[in-house]
Write a protein that binds this DNA or RNA. Structure first.
Lengths: 344, 344
DNA sequence: ATTAGCACTCAACTTACACGAGTGCTAACC
DNA sequence: GGTTAGCACTCGTGTAAGTTGAGTGCTAAT
């Protein structure tokens, strides 16, 4: 499928117009509004070809054309030009991020809010996974008759709690001593750096072979790396209602339903977890409830470690280039800020 | 304003019918459908009087009547009869709560989900405040150059983190020692039981007068009692869209907006915090965004200590008696479960 | 005091029709 | 041969007129 230059121009015109107006667009309108230099009749012929290629769709016989998922895909891959943010917008984002990293949790929540505010779409942010974080402190504490609590503090200001089941948990003092020991080995390293076998060997030397506490280490590591324990924040969910494509209540409801379930959110953000920016258009989404939406997501990171993922959800008719720009800008600031955090 | 017996009957009929159908109801329908023993003409006259009293409203000239906020208020205060849950429903709730108290957080989330499922309204739950909880463990840990992390574990399986700013925080070992000390005084008591002055005096004896750690105690207590640090969970937000009264997108949007903001949720649930069940109808709500909604809320508790609040939000035409029944049932189970927790 | 009867109101639905944005096709044009 | 003007055709949208029916209020009879 090769498109001529003017077919690309026409497709771009259709997509731009549809993104702005949400109305099907016809040949005459293109001829008038966009500087293609062709008559409506010629454009009509080209549009007919574009439709044969599956790039645009006619909602009904006497209506204009609307981009298909495939059309958006082509646009996003080849036609879209990245728009720089205005200095005001960039400054707004920069300040917001600088002012809000008391701790990672509120930083990510504020970031999500800001993105929704600027784009008017819905934002999802998955909390950083601790895999690549430098451990600042780890502490075991009593919890109940059959479990202990483990609290993890990282250099990048993340605090995480895990509850771990075990029969006959040690008393407070023992837990405190084990914590001191454990910290000697792990502080200043990240999970991926630590040789688990070696750590368990060293611990065994101190507390004696076969102590339940040794196998506990495995459990802590498992939970720390476990995907489902991360939190996900959403913001701007209400924005869904502003788009005419969701004026069908059932469509809106199914999107809301997806956004209310943590498992689904994790699947949406986590599937194909990647550092680079990814765009998933309409039917390409694996989750049924958001097959009318497009999703733009990117992992935020520090050094070579991946932290978490930011996703922006809107109608397939979303302003891809704006969202991509915002996302790049956020990434830039976050990576900068988080790197500073690691350094200091 | 005194209502005759048959006026009450008619009002009740109108409200019951409207709750079920969301359609304005006329005199003839009442005469046919409900066993009042009067002709439509007589009912018409009574309805006219009810309207004069502001209990029902005519949306437009040739339409039937609809209950007003004032009408619902009268109904809720005097007319409503509490409906017992079916054994299935009660059993469902009981099992759900029994199976889900690994920790309070997921217990409350599951409870919220269950309520939304049964009622089809939106549920909000504020996480327990720790004021009245028995402390199981408290631990200070390093956080960053200018703050420490405090983790609190309670007998009722709540884990809370606080970050506290302080210049030159002590090192890990000192924090560990202080924690051990602190635990000696507080474990097994609740915040309200502890004599703060005495505690600080005792601590001063151990670490020396005027240590910054002494004033830290005040800060910890403040944060533990602070309202804004509690989390609020929502469930069934999407249900809002099922009610015809929110088919106006702007109305739905403003409700969604309120439900997305934690501050607003805390205000909704917290204002007039009370142990007993409270019903807030339409315009009675202090938050503008939910003035088209009714709210039924109740505090859940253990012993004589108030834990948190459960709120159920729906259209003013909500099924008050069903919701009240469900809420009572939940309260019953929660109090039972939480009391068991305290005991064991 | 109650009710039957009647005139009146008004939202909601139906029907019919005109409008216009859009298409596809064909024939003429450069 | 690609381009374009012209035209018949389609079909959703908007509007106006008319119909229906649920509901009211009032009055007079019971």
């Amino acid at each position: 499928m090769v498109l001529s230059d003017r077919q690309l121009k026409i497709l771009q015109a259709i997509i731009n117009d549809y993104i702005a107006t949400a109305e099907p667009i016809g040949s005459r309108t293109i001829a008038k509004k966009y500087d293609i230099g062709l008559s409506s009749a010629t454009i009509r012929n080209e549009m007919s070809d574009l439709e044969d290629m599956g790039l645009i769709i006619q909602p009904h016989a006497s209506a204009g054309r609307v981009p298909s998922d495939k059309g958006y895909r082509l646009y996003v891959d080849n036609l879209m030009n990245r728009k720089e943010l205005t200095p005001e917008q960039a400054g707004f984002l920069f300040n917001l991020i600088q002012e809000n990293f008391e701790d990672i949790e509120s930083l990510m929540q504020e970031t999500a809010k800001a993105i929704s505010l600027i784009t008017n779409y819905t934002t999802m942010v998955s909390e950083p996974r601790v895999l690549r974080m430098v451990i600042k402190h780890i502490q075991l504490m009593p919890y109940d008759e059959s479990s202990i609590a483990v609290v993890l503090v990282t250099e990048s200001k993340v605090i995480k709690n895990y509850v771990i089941k075990m029969k006959n948990p040690p008393d407070t003092d023992s837990l405190s001593n084990i914590s001191l020991l454990l910290n000697k080995f792990v502080v200043g390293k990240d999970f991926a750096d630590i040789d688990l076998g070696l750590l368990k060997l060293e611990l065994a030397k101190m507390v004696g072979e076969g102590q339940p506490i040794i196998s506990l280490i495995d459990t802590i590591w498992e939970m720390a790396l476990e995907e489902s324990t991360v939190d996900v924040y959403t913001s701007g969910v209400k924005n869904i209602l502003t788009f005419p494509e969701f004026s069908d209540f059932n469509k809106a409801k199914s999107v809301f339903q997806a956004l209310e379930e943590k498992d689904i959110l994790i699947t949406i953000l986590g599937k194909g977890r990647t550092e680079e920016l990814k765009i998933v258009i309409g039917e390409e989404n694996s989750i049924d409830q958001i097959k009318d939406c497009s999703l733009i997501k990117a992992g935020y990171k520090i050094g070579n470690g991946l932290y978490g993922t930011i996703g922006i959800l809107g109608p397939t008719r979303m302003n891809y280039s704006q969202v991509v720009s915002v996302l790049y800008e956020i990434e830039k600031n976050l990576n900068y800020t988080l790197r500073a955090l690691r350094g200091g």
